[in-house]
Amino acid sequence: MNAFRLAGDMTHLLSVVVLLLKIHTIKSCAGISLKTQELYALVFAARYLDLFIHFISLYNTVMKLVFLASSFSIVWYMRRHKIVRRTYDKDHDTFRHHFLVLPCLALALLINERFTFREVMWAFSIYLEAVAILPQLVLLQRTRNIDNLTGQYVFFLGAYRVLYILNWIYRYFTEPHFVHWISWVAGIVQTLLYADFFYYYIMSWKNNVKLELPA
C-alpha cells in the first residue's frame, strides 16, 4: 500500500470520526444531510458484499467493518436517537436522493467489469458514491451557520477523494496491470464535485472568516 492510499483512507476515517464526534458527543447533526448518509450506507453495503468471501488483509477487513458500522449507526442516530434527531435540519435537506439510486443501478447494469451480481453491485456502489455527496453540498449551501465540525467533515471527505486519485496515478506507474477505469472516471467526477466547496473552504480558512457557501 502506498502513502497516498493510506493517507486517503486515514482522511476518510477522520471524516467519519469528526461526524461521530459531532453526533455522539455534541448530540447534534445540524447541517448534516441524512440523505447523503443513507446513500453512503447503501454504497458500503453494496460494495462490501464480498467481505466474508474474499479476504484481502486484516487492515482491509477491519476498515470495511468500520465504514459499514459507522455509516449505519450514523443513519440510526439521525433517524432514531431522541436528542440527535431533533437537531436534523429536515426542511432544508430536500434533495430527492432516491432519484440518484436508479440511474446508478442502470449504469452499473450497462457498464461494469463483468456481468455478475457482485461486479454489478460493485460498479453500482462506485457510481452512487460519486454522487452521494450532492444532498450534503446542497444542504451546506442552504445552511446559514456552517459549524466547524460540519465543514471539517466535508473537507476530509473531499481530501480522501483527492488522495485516492494520487494513489491511482502512483499505482498506474508502479503496477502496470492495475487499471479500474470505472473507479477512476467516477472518482474524478466525484472529486470535481468538491472543487467549489474546497474553494470556499480554503478562502474562509485563509481569511479567517466563517465558512459560507453562496446560494
Partner: peptide, 10 residues
C-alpha cells in the same frame, strides 16, 4: 476469461 485486477481498495 482474464482475471480482473484485485479490488483491494475501500
Amino acid at each position: 476469461t482474464a482475471s480482473l485486477p484485485a479490488k483491494d481498495e475501500l
